[in-house]
Design a protein around this nucleic acid. Structure first.
Lengths: 221, 221
DNA sequence: GTCTATAACCTGATAGAC
DNA sequence: GTCTATCAGGTTATAGAC
């Protein structure tokens, strides 16, 4: 993540101890590098050599800590999965109207996706390349359950129109993350602009929220 | 595509000619198999051996017809690209109101995506794995230009609310295709159901269209 | 805990017979 | 046009020194 090879680090090296022997730090560094690599290339395409190089350790370390590429991948996926779920769960939804809750949830999701481009790519690869094999180990309800819950309440209270909560939750996430996932294909649509600049990201967030909020609201709102 | 190894075919084999020597048919068969393989694994992950096996020919044939895996990939991408664009262009948009045009366009897109699951996966891989390198060779405006045009007209005529046509076009496609792309991850949300059954697909199409049409329409419609 | 070296395997691509 | 064989390069994973 920081690009500094561990072999060149000197951080609090106790006297003449061999350069940086910090198991927890190494493990965590490997996870960071692995997340980048898996996001770019998927489980199959990821190269352990590349992960080792980014971390600044040798390939052997990968296997020392994670036994296999597959187990490293599972560790990355679990960490990513829990991180995104926690964002949704950290919001006190009960205290808000369905309208407020949905908009708040959406904004948090969009900000998270814009900051953490890796997750969307990893989840996509997981779905297409691995057919959800690992995703479904954690599965449960994840973000979709939270969104569907809000939508269901909104329909019951009359804030939202008649809609299917689960289908709509999935379509909402699609409208939110597609821009980031497919950005390298669609960059020519905004020639000269950087799609990840804060201007463009804020614009996308605004447009996505407006599309979705108008899309679910009851017409007599 | 049909699973019958060419070596076992006997279709109109002229007398004692060596089993099926039909350049155009072989070329086309390879393209079909390649599309499946690239959709499942991307350019990097696709195996020429797998494409050859699916087609029922040997690996050497791939190189005889397409010189390299990369050129085969480009051929697949170009065919897929043109196919999708033609669907959008085959509609006589000028004759419809923005409302009708958008709904018609959406329905065609959703039906195409549901029938041709390969395209969405290929385009995704292309964006994430190849960073749009090949996509942008054809690029131009594609489907997004058509959608953005409809949206722009709708805003001008007052049918649609104030919105940015291009951002909204991208978000609309996202809401439409995400369900199919990520189906292997989200299948547990509808336990026991097949997400590609006609019931579920029709349900998704209905929900997606309602979300989007309500999302863009002016509130005083 | 970290490194070097290498085993065992897989894959894209080509040569050459038919 | 199609097949069989094979090479050259690259990848995961492990053994063993430090």
């Amino acid at each position: 993540m920081n690009g500094v090879p561990r072999s060149q680090q000197s951080k609090d090296a106790k006297k003449s101890a061999p350069l940086t022997r910090d198991a927890e730090a190494t493990r965590s560094s490997i996870l960071d590098s692995a997340e980048d690599e898996f996001a770019a290339n998927g489980l199959l395409g990821a190269r352990t050599e590349a992960i080792a190089a980014k971390t600044g350790v040798t390939k052997a370390m990968i296997y020392y800590y994670f036994q296999s590429k597959e187990q490293l991948y599972e560790a990355v996926l679990e960490r990513a999965f829990l991180r995104r779920l926690q964002i949704a769960q950290s919001i006190n939804l009960a205290a808000m109207s369905p309208d407020q809750a949905l908009e708040r949830c959406l904004r948090e999701l969009l900000i998270d996706v814009s900051k953490n481009k890796n997750l969307s790519a990893i989840f996509f690869y997981e779905a297409v390349q691995n057919k959800g094999k690992y995703y479904n180990k954690f599965g449960a309800m994840s973000l979709y359950g939270v969104l569907a819950g809000i939508l269901e309440q909104g329909v019951a209270k009359g804030n939202f129109r008649q809609l299917d909560p689960m289908h709509t939750a999935v379509n909402i996430v699609g409208a939110s993350v597609f821009y980031f996932c497919t950005r390298e294909n669609i960059k020519h649509l905004w020639a000269g602009k950087n799609l990840l600049s804060s201007d463009m990201v804020e614009w996308h967030i605004k447009e996505a929220i407006e599309l979705i909020m108008n899309g679910v609201r009851a017409s007599d709102g």
